[in-house]
Simulated assay, not measured.
Amino acid sequence: MRIAVAIPCYKVLQHVLGVISAIGPEVKVIYAVDDACPDGSGRFIEEHNSDPRVRVLYNLENRGVGGAVVTAYEAAIVDGMDIVVKIDGDGQMNPALLPLFVRPIIRRQADYTKGNRFYRPESLRGMPSVRLFGNAVLSLMTKFSCGYWSSMDPTNGYTAIHTAVLRQLPLAKLERRYFFETDMLYHLNTIRAVVHDVPMDSVYASEESNLKISKILPEFLHKHISRLIKRYVYLYLLRDFNIGSLYSVLGALLCLIGITFGGFHWLHGMATGLPASSGTVMFAALPLIIGIQFLIAFLHYDVSNVPREALSPELSDED
């Protein structure tokens, strides 16, 4: 397997050379992407780096971490790479873990791997409590919107992907900034790619992260709701209509009937002062109770419907 590493470079002059030097010999090409860095990280790398595997790519305008990674993805596809591992240039991702990320892909057990700092309690010791809470909330939202119920730590940027799967993704449509990793999971689920979490420890260097949980949670909530609706419509109404589709449609319909009927008679009782009969209450409660059970059944189906068979072997054979 021809393995490449993508390093987005934006204000990482203090650590990027150390990151490059720690990348093992199993890697064939290292793409260092200068994302219109005001510090001139691309020039800095070209002047001080001695590793012949390094190829500096330049974005003429700042595209965010997602735009920088997509630039490296496109170069890796053109160069015929098999796997692309994304490592940040700020020293917070240990390059020694790279074999753990590519191993499930090489063994054809996964199409995409990502880091998970929530796997062991000991891994969270270096994570601030606010960031820990924010990541837990984002993980829960991602489970609903992206459908990978066994995955945690969606904002973790230590990832690896098979280029055969990359070719199936709309790279030009991917989110460019902090929502990039989550948007990747959403698009991977639409093509039924297998995602595997790799346990890793949280590391915080001297660089201060620009990711502010208090600011991104409202924005992320809106985007998660949008992806949830799109995923449901595409997977359960357009591509297929299965038992999960039936559960969800009947559940939503019955809940709507129960709420509408019950709400109407509640308002009527408030206006007239007459209490509703037991039959009226039951007729309102029964469809609501059954509808909730149907929605729970749909959720159970969605959880069990996580992709389990890797796409990359079949896609590689087609290539």
Rank of each mutant, 00 (worst) to 15 (best):
R167S: 08
R167H: 01
L169M: 14
L169T: 09
L169I: 12
L169K: 04
L171P: 04
L171V: 08
A172R: 06
L174M: 13
R176S: 14
F179Y: 15
F179T: 04
F179M: 12
F180D: 01
T182I: 15
T182V: 15
M184W: 03
M184E: 09
L185S: 15
N189W: 02
N189M: 04
T190C: 10
T190K: 13
T190G: 06
I191S: 08
I191L: 11
R192T: 11
A193Y: 02
V194S: 07
V195H: 14
H196D: 12
D197C: 14
D197K: 09
V198T: 15
V198S: 12
M200W: 05
M200R: 15
M200G: 10
D201W: 06
S202P: 00
S202Y: 13
S202H: 13
V203A: 08
V203Y: 04
Y204H: 12
Y204V: 12
A205Q: 05
E208C: 03
E208L: 05
E208D: 07
N210T: 06
N210D: 05
N210F: 00
N210K: 01
L211W: 00
K215Y: 08
L217A: 09
P218N: 09
P218S: 09
E219F: 03
L221P: 01
K223I: 14
H224V: 03
H224G: 02
H224K: 02
I225K: 10
S226Y: 03
L228G: 14
I229Q: 10
K230V: 00
Y232N: 07
L235S: 06
L235N: 05
L235R: 05
L237C: 03
L238Q: 13
R239S: 13
R239L: 14
F241Q: 12
F241Y: 14
N242V: 03
I243W: 14
G244H: 05
G244Y: 03
S245D: 07
L246F: 04
S248R: 07
S248V: 03
V249Q: 03
L250H: 06
L250P: 07
A252Q: 00
A252M: 02
A252C: 03
L253Y: 02
L254G: 07
L254I: 09
L256E: 10
G258W: 00
I259W: 01
I259D: 03
I259M: 08
T260G: 11
G262I: 10
G263I: 12
G263Q: 11
G263T: 13
H265N: 14
H265A: 06
H265T: 14
H265R: 14
L267W: 11
G269M: 01
G269Y: 01
M270Q: 11
M270R: 10
A271L: 15
A271T: 12
T272L: 11
G273C: 08
G273Q: 07
G273V: 10
